[in-house]
Amino acid sequence: MIDSLVDSPLFGITLTLGVYTLAQVLYGRFRHVLLNPVALSIGGIILFLLALDIPFQSYALGGDLILFLLGPAVVALAVPLYERRQEILKYKLPIVAGVASGGITSIVTATSLVWILGGSRELVLSVAPKSVTAPIAIGIVESIGGIAPLAAAIVVLTGCLGAVCGPEFCRRVGIVDPVSMGIAMGTAAHGIGTARMLEVDRLGGALSGLAIGLNGMLTAAMISLFFGFFG
């Protein structure tokens, strides 16, 4: 009876929303960056599944339904882009140049580091879009022959790292204005970084959201051109 409950979408959805809600309460109470709700939820759910010996496939029945919503969420990014077109025009040069240079930096450093340190070809392809939002990264990796679910997981870990350490790192290296920090956070750490940036500064968060979409389009175009020719 328990098995049939676990093998329905109800299980994965309830577990995800429940653990995430708990993680948000914890984060709200202590406000410590290490208690990032996404990182905490992922760790908590993995431990729960391992402890009760529940296969990932059972969790994914519900998890995939939540993951599906990332598709329309990417489309929805058009709304803040359209709403803030005036601001975007004001900062168009730093946005485009920042995102472009960061996007290229991400592809080049991520793939070359894995390659130099002896990672497999599949792994090189799977880290290529690591700074892009998950649904775009999945699309990219599927088209160039990497492991899409692994790429998605790497993308999420990148986002958690950026969200946890990003603003502090930026201040240490002298990137203190919210405009530059926001563009950097969205380019490096996509949606999870943007969620964190929105807490730091509203305009920075908006620009971070814009950088997700721009970097997504740019990286998709660059990777498919590059690996399309040389892959």
């Binding site: 995430y20 998605a152 999420v156 969620a195």
Partner: peptide, 11 residues
Amino acid sequence: ALLFVPAGVGV
């Protein structure tokens, strides 16, 4: 941010 959780669990 919530929508990324299942992808992360995929790790």
